[in-house]
Design a protein around this nucleic acid. Structure first.
Lengths: 342, 342
DNA sequence: ATGAAAGCGCTAACAG
DNA sequence: CTGTTAGCGCTTTCAT
C-alpha cells in the first residue's frame, strides 16, 4: 500500500518538490514545459496527493463536514444534494457523518470532523445542545439547518412554518372548508410550530371557533388513530390537516376504511412533500420545503464565514410552497349551503 | 480558530510531547501521576488531537470510507448502520461519501477517500467499473456490497437472489397459485438476476409453461403499466411477483382500479421490504434482505484484510427471508378446482 | 517510565 | 519561473 510521494515525482521529473506542489495545485506561474514534465511523471507513478500532509501544512482542508440527524430520513438526502453542488462549485469537498438519530451519535460525528480539522460544519436537523454547537464553532464555521441558535457564531437556515401552515388553511378555506382539524406531531421536532401555525391561520381566517387539534406522533398509525377520533365527532371535520405526510397517509386510510370519499367527504392535506405524497394511489396535497435550497444556502452562508470572514450571525428563512394533488377538493357541505343561499 | 497543540499540552504538564502522545492514545506504561497531569492540562487547554498530523505520522487512519451509490435510496441507510456499529466495535470510524447515483460521482468519492488515505473502502451498490475498483484496491482494502468482482483484491457481499425468488414462488405455489407472472426491473441493476430466479423457480415447480415476464423498470408507474398489460391477458395471472416493492405498489394500484380484490382475485408480492411495504394500506408481502448484516459482514471482511493481512478474496452470500403480509393469499381458482376433484 | 530526535508528505515564504 | 528552507502536529525508534 506504499504510495508514491511528491518527492518521487519531483525526482522523476527532475524538478523540485515545490514545483510539483505548484503544478498539482494548478498554479498559473509554471512553464508549460515543466508542467507537462511533472504531470507525465505523476501520471506514470500513479501519484495521488496526500491530503493529510497537504492539509496539515496548509492548515486548511477545503472540506465541509455535514452531520445529518438521521440518514434514514430521505429529507436529508436532498439537503445533501444541495450542499454538495454548492460546495463543489466553490472548490470544497464534503464528508458526511451520520448522527444515528441521537444526540450521542451527532456528538461523535461532530468530534470526528473537528479532529479532521474541517473548515466548516453543517448540522442538519441536529438535536445536540446549543452549548455543543457553540463549542464546535470555536474550531470551525458552523451553520445549522432546521433549528434555531442564539449564538453569534452560528448561522441558521429554516423554513417558515407559519407561511406553510397558512398556505394550507388558505387553500382549504378557498375550497369552502371551515371545519378544518389538525393532527399534530405530538412532542416531535417542529410539531409545536406547525400546531401554532395552524391555530393562528385559523384565527386569521376568522375560524377560531373551528380550531380542533388531536394528538398524533408523525407516524402512520398515529394519523390513523387521530382520524378515528375525528370521525366520531358529532360534527366531523370536512378537512384534515396532518402535521406530516406519513400521518396524513394514516388518516387517509382511516377515512377510506370508514367508507368516506376523499376529497369529497373529507379533504386531507399533509406536510413535507415526501416521496410518499407523490405516489399514485395517495396523491397527497401537501407542503413542499425546498430542501435542496436549504443545503445551498447553508453552504453559501458557511463559505461567507470561511472565505469572506463574516463574523455576525445570519438567520435565513425560506418559504415553502403548496403542492395540490388529489386529496383536497371543494367542500361539498359548503356548496350545499351556497345552494340554499341562492 | 487556532487550536492548542500537543506541544502546548506537554509544556503545561511539564513533560515531553512523546509522553502526551502516549497518554492520548491510552498507552499502558505511563505512571498514574503523569497521566493525570497530562489529562488535566489537555482538559484545561481544550486540547483536541490533530488527526491529520496523527495519521500522517502513523501512516494509518483507522478510518473506513463508505461510498454509497445513492443516498436517496433508504436501502443504504441500513447498510450504513451495520457498517457503523461493526466499525465502532473495532475502533474504526467511518466517513460517508455520496455517489450521487452516477459513475462519476462514485469515482469522485472514491478518489477523495483515497487522498484522505482511508485504510479501507466499502462500496455499496457501486456502478463504477471493476477496473476502477481494482485501482482503488492498490491503495486501500476494498469490499463491494451488491455486486460481483473477479479481482483477488476485492471481497464482495451479496444477497442470494435465487433463494429469494424461490421463497416467493414456493410461497405462492403453496397457496395454490400456478399462473404467476413477473414484472421485472427492465435493465436496472439486479433485475436480470431476479428475472432469472423467477424463471428457474417456476421450472423447478413444474410451472415452466406459466412463465410470463412483462417489462417494468422498478418504478411505480412501470408496475402500474405492466399490471395493466397482465390484466388484458385472456388467462390473467392469479399472482403477480414484482421485482421490487415500488413496482408492486403500482401493480396493486392497477389491480384495485380494475375492481379486483387483492389477494383473493390477484395476489401480489414485492421485493426488498422497504418502508413502503410495511405501510398499513399496502401491507405488502415481500422479500427482506438483511441490510444491516450486509454492512456488518462487509466491515468484518475489510478488517480481516487490514488487521489480519488476508490477501485472498472472500465472496459472502447472505440469504433473504420472506415477509408475509396481506397481499398474498390462497388462489381461489385452485380451490375451485380442488372442489371439483373431491 | 520518560525524553530526544528524526521524520511523515506536503505547503509557504523567500530568494534568485 | 523555479529552488531552498522551514515548518505543520504528531508518532516512533532509540536511549536512558
Amino acid at each position: 500500500m506504499a504510495q508514491p510521494t511528491m518527492q518521487q515525482v519531483a525526482e522523476a521529473a527532475g524538478v523540485s518538490t515545490a514545483l510539483v506542489s505548484l503544478v498539482m495545485r494548478g498554479a498559473p506561474n509554471v512553464s508549460d514545459m515543466r508542467r507537462a514534465l511533472v504531470l507525465k511523471a505523476a501520471e506514470e507513478l500513479g501519484y495521488r496527493p496526500n491530503v493529510l500532509a497537504r492539509n496539515l501544512a496548509s492548515r486548511r482542508t477545503r472540506t465541509l463536514g455535514v452531520v445529518v440527524n438521521d440518514l434514514h430520513n430521505p429529507f436529508f438526502a436532498e439537503i445533501i444534494d444541495g450542499i454538495q453542488s454548492a460546495a463543489e462549485a466553490n472548490g470544497y469537498r464534503i464528508l458526511i457523518g451520520n448522527g444515528q438519530h441521537s444526540r450521542r451519535g451527532e456528538s461523535d460525528a461532530i468530534e470526528t470532523f473537528l479532529q479532521l480539522r474541517v473548515d466548516g460544519l453543517i448540522l442538519a436537523g441536529a438535536v445536540v445542545t446549543e452549548d455543543e454547537m457553540e463549542r464546535a464553532a470555536k474550531s470551525a464555521a458552523v451553520v445549522a439547518i432546521g433549528r434555531t441558535a442564539a449564538s453569534r457564531e452560528i448561522d441558521t437556515v429554516n423554513c417558515d412554518e407559519s407561511v406553510g401552515t397558512r398556505l394550507v388553511i388558505d387553500h382549504l378555506v378557498g375550497l369552502g372548508h371551515r371545519r378544518i382539524s389538525h393532527i399534530d406531531g405530538g412532542s416531535g421536532a417542529g410539531a409545536a410550530n406547525r400546531r401554532l401555525g395552524y391555530e393562528e391561520s385559523m384565527r386569521e381566517f376568522g375560524l377560531g371557533e373551528f380550531i380542533n387539534t388531536v394528538r398524533g406522533d408523525f407516524s402512520e398509525s398515529g394519523g390513523y388513530n387521530a382520524a378515528d377520533e375525528l370521525l366520531t365527532l358529532h360534527q366531523r371535520p370536512t378537512a384534515i390537516f396532518a402535521a406530516n405526510d406519513l400521518s396524513a397517509a394514516g388518516a387517509l386510510d382511516r377515512v377510506e376504511d370508514a367508507g368516506l370519499e376523499v376529497p369529497s367527504d373529507v379533504a386531507i392535506v399533509g406536510y413535507d412533500n415526501t416521496g410518499l405524497a407523490a405516489m399514485h394511489h395517495l396523491s397527497l396535497t401537501t407542503i413542499n420545503q425546498p430542501r435542496g435550497v436549504f443545503g445551498r444556502i447553508a453552504t453559501e452562508l458557511i463559505l461567507e464565514r470561511i472565505d469572506d470572514g463574516r463574523t455576525t450571525a445570519v438567520h435565513h428563512v425560506v418559504a415553502p410552497t403548496l403542492v395540490v394533488r388529489k386529496t383536497s377538493g371543494p367542500s361539498t357541505e359548503t356548496s350545499r349551503e351556497e345552494e340554499i343561499l341562492v
